[in-house]
Design a protein around this nucleic acid. Structure first.
Lengths: 348, 348
DNA sequence: GCGATAACCCGAAACGTTTCGGAAGCCTCA
DNA sequence: TGAGGCTTCCGAAACGTTTCGGGTTATCGC
């Protein structure tokens, strides 16, 4: 193993200068920088992270805390998150660890807070990635209070004062709703995720505002919140069509799984898409439910979940380095892809 | 943040003694040890890992290298592995990182070797966990040659000279085969995993040896190797029953997914389990395919995959600490659970 | 009462890096 | 000519831990 010391002796320079040269500091002439870099390459110098961390006071490791539960290993979204963040952070020279807290921790979400303290105070973790924020998320408040760096995938309020990466959930719901209204629909259903998540609230607001623009009052019966699964899509659709008089002429689905369920329910109910019922969805391009296997093809807003890991990594690193929250926030716009699942409603 | 220095001042002791007391070394009286420990607790002393690592020369991080591929996020076994190892290592004060190499690395498995070098030479990783060993696994030879600590889940040969944790694949195949022979079966099929994996070879050997004991010659037509999926079970079963004269009276399935496929194929073919065909399997108790949802209930050998993460963690830590390979190896026995899927074959 | 032994303790060095404060050499401008 | 400012460099300290070599007592056997 070659050290800075070895390099400095080999070059007839001080350790200081070698360090500064390698780290691109100002105080070193272009000529020596070249020399140093060549020597470093030739002697296969690899900086010792432990030493670097000892002086910087940082560990070079960031984490993601998740409560372990029966079946955690089947959570595709979680795994997508882990693999995505793993790759992005390691490209940036930082290690990413998944920390599973034992499941015997009480279900009270407050009980997860000390885990963050323990991991960060020991100096073993420099920061955290949070996902699935609630409207008033305890974790966020706790981390802010304790000045522990973090970044959120999503956000808990409109204009938060912490780093985050989110998609425009309000906008996509508004867009899908307007699209349907443009075709003449007025009885529009929304099947979305659990109410506790903040993004669900944003989507609901976008939906309602778009309805409002057209002078349509939202109908509670046509608004459903549940887990984002195919079963949810089937059940919600089936229930809304139990009484034909109350049934919607169009359905907005929170994701592709729900849309899949809706399609299957509609097929079973003998309703045709889009002749009888129009269907749209938001597609986050995540594994098992492929939007291109739909018949008829599905009109969607789209934004790949996988596009968020890079910005999240950048922002967390920024947060650790002390950048202002305002500089490390992004609301990504979504694509709108018009396909064959929307038509004008049947005349009454 | 409290340091050893703070503690030593607070106690009127030297830093040396405090360190030795906390680490349980010999040279310190019981009384002071008590005092030190209390003070440490009171002042919330947490050792600085970076400093510890700087002097020990180790990073305290171990890794798992996997080639990233389209759909890596859907690989349940991989995720089970990651979550299991994550938990076990973090309980032991060690961090576990999943390192996904970019998928543009050529498919040649040799190309993954430099990744290990890079990660370990830089001092960022102390050791590795390997899974799915082949018969002559390049990675194993490479790590041995370069004296990089590792542990293998499985093994590439009967009595290897490196740390590993494996189940008795030879024994379980032998056991299942003998069980069927005991009921009078002679035309026994084996549907197992891809040939390249070492464990497949062990199972094949156990199967053949058990047949040999009974004077039965193995029939190549009844031995199938393919991915361990439900589809494999269906297809292999369907093909073996294409010509009734060549069909088996019993099937040994490599895992529960295959057994599930076999059950479905047999149902479609109008064969009853166990009256027409007996079925047994090995159950590694992994998520989606639950053995208890079988009808009739399935006779299996069983060993939970989840039981391997603990020993693997222990063994890798042992390897890093320089323990001899012989002390950190284990072949776990499997359970045999007799249920309702086996009966005597129909008389010809 | 003396040397040996054991039990307990300490100072200082080491790990490899970053950074602070200063210093030498050179140039510029008055 | 000399004050001031760049540019380029260096020594030394610091980060917090472990460990090596040695030191001080007290005890014990003779």
């Amino acid at each position: 193993m070659t050290t800075l010391r070895d390099l400095s002796r080999h070059l007839g320079l001080s350790v200081t200068q070698v360090s500064r040269a390698l780290n691109g500091h100002g105080d070193v002439s272009e000529a020596t920088r070249q020399r140093v870099e060549e020597a470093a390459k030739k002697l296969k110098y690899i900086p010792n992270i432990a030493a670097r961390r000892l002086v910087s006071g940082r560990s070079g490791v960031v984490g993601f805390v998740e409560r372990s539960f029966e079946g955690v290993a089947r959570d595709t979204i979680l795994f997508e998150t882990v693999t995505g963040l793993s790759s992005q952070f390691s490209e940036r020279g930082i290690q990413f660890v998944l920390h599973l807290t034992p499941e015997d921790v009480s279900a009270d979400s407050r009980s997860i807070l000390p885990v963050y303290d323990r991991l960060s105070l020991g100096g073993s973790l420099d920061g955290f990635v949070l996902t699935g924020p609630r409207r008033n998320d305890l974790r966020i408040r706790h981390l802010l209070n304790n000045k522990i760096p973090f970044v959120v995938h999503g956000r808990s309020s409109e204009n938060p004062d912490y780093p985050f990466f989110d998609i425009d959930n309000y906008g996509l719901a508004q867009r899908l709703t307007r699209h349907l209204i443009g075709y003449g629909h007025r009885r529009i259903a929304l099947i979305s995720g659990p109410e506790t998540f903040a993004y669900t609230q944003f989507r609901l607001a976008g939906f309602k505002d778009a309805l409002g623009e057209a002078g349509i009052a939202p109908v509670p019966f046509l608004i459903r919140h549940a887990a984002m699964t195919e079963a949810t899509g089937m059940i919600a659709t089936a229930q809304m069509f139990a009484d034909p008089k109350r049934a919607p002429t169009a359905i907005i689905c929170g994701n592709v799984l729900i849309a899949n369920g809706a399609y299957r329910a509609l097929a079973a109910l003998g309703r045709e898409v889009p002749a009888d019922v129009s269907v749209v969805a938001h597609d986050d391009v995540v594994s098992p439910a492929r939007t291109d296997s739909f018949y008829p093809t599905l009109t969607v807003t789209r934004s790949a979940l996988s596009a968020s890991w890079g910005p999240l990594a950048d922002f967390l690193i920024g947060a650790i380095e002390g950048r202002a929250a305002g500089e490390i926030q992004e609301v990504a716009q979504v694509d709108f892809i018009e396909r064959a699942s929307v038509a004008a409603p049947r005349p009454e």
